[in-house]
Design a protein around this nucleic acid. Structure first.
Length: 276
DNA sequence: CTTTAACCCTGGAGGC
DNA sequence: TGCCTCCAGGGTTAAA
């Protein structure tokens, strides 16, 4: 599934091609997504130049002078560049046509979204209901152990679930939550409010390292796939230490990795390295 | 306020 | 081989 590294790499890919170009035509072939794609979106943005391609959390933001198109890849979404004459496949739900580039949004499960925020409604990041309550960006310098410790004060929720909520820090999905907690040697079941500042600091570093590592290892893969003819849905190869490794030896101490369920989601951890 | 659970959807895996 | 069931997952929303 696309986590923040995939989304950011996708952003970098389209940011080299879209800004300064006029979107000749946008087509929503399938409007039944997480929310309906606005019926008039094609008319609203076709013929307008793209100013910038940004990201907030896992939302891609394509900026025009008169507003911003929000794109979320959901669980199974991918955006890829395709030749002008390549036929659409099943689940290619939306299409962006530029003079020298064409992009298709492919999303079998349709958990993704394509929305529109008009400029006169205010700055998208602070006024769009889906963006205004998002947590801090993981690479924001203000995201520190002290900051996290303060925000977790009094919370009894397990730290894994706090990370996943998206209201603290964005971009840490189910896979990287397990990976970051392993790297920080923190038990995922620990009550969030009981983490020391030191452990919070370790966790902040671990989140950044986990995301950075994924960006570096997967960047070239997705760059190719964006610029050429990769298979849609080709996500980063996951170099997981614990995720999906139930029963496998911990890379650090060889104790079998344990799988538990928290909030109806799988969590993987080493019961030896990650003591409470 | 915090926390929990249902829900949206399809593909893939496993059982028979 | 095919049909059935189950599960995975991000993130919003309603309910407790």
């Amino acid at each position: 599934m696309p986590e923040l590294p995939e989304v950011e790499t996708t952003r970098r890919g389209i940011a080299t091609l879209m800004p300064g170009q006029t979107l000749q035509r946008f087509i929503a072939h399938e409007t039944r997504m997480r929310w309906p794609v606005p019926a008039d979106l094609e008319a609203i943005i076709s013929g307008h130049p793209v100013l910038d391609c940004k990201r907030r959390g896992k939302y891609l933001l394509i900026e025009f002078a008169h507003g911003t198109q929000l794109i979320h890849l959901g669980m199974s979404g991918s955006l890829r560049r395709v030749p002008a004459d390549e036929p659409r496949r099943r689940h290619d739900h939306a299409e962006w046509q530029f003079e020298h580039a064409r992009f298709l949004l492919h999303d079998p499960r349709r958990f993704g979204a394509i929305l529109w925020h008009p400029a006169d409604a205010g700055p998208v990041e602070s006024t769009h209901p889906l963006l205004q309550n998002l947590g801090i960006e993981p690479f924001d310098p203000a995201f520190t152990g002290e900051w996290l410790h303060q925000r977790l004060r009094g919370r009894k929720l397990a730290v894994k679930q706090a990370l996943l909520s998206g209201t603290l820090v964005v971009g840490v999905g189910n896979i990287y939550a397990s990976e970051a907690l392993f790297k920080a040697r923190i038990n995922p079941q620990t009550a969030a409010g009981r983490l020391s500042v030191m452990r919070c600091t370790r966790l902040v570093s671990a989140i950044r390292e986990t995301l950075t590592q994924a960006l570096e290892s997967g960047g070239s893969t997705l760059r190719d796939y964006l610029n050429a003819t990769g298979e849609p849905g080709a996500y980063f190869d996951l170099h997981a230490a614990v995720y999906g490794k139930q029963g496998a030896p911990c890379p650090s101490c060889s104790t079998p990795i344990r799988r538990i369920v928290q909030g109806q989601r799988a969590t993987y951890y080493c019961p030896c390295c990650q003591q409470r």
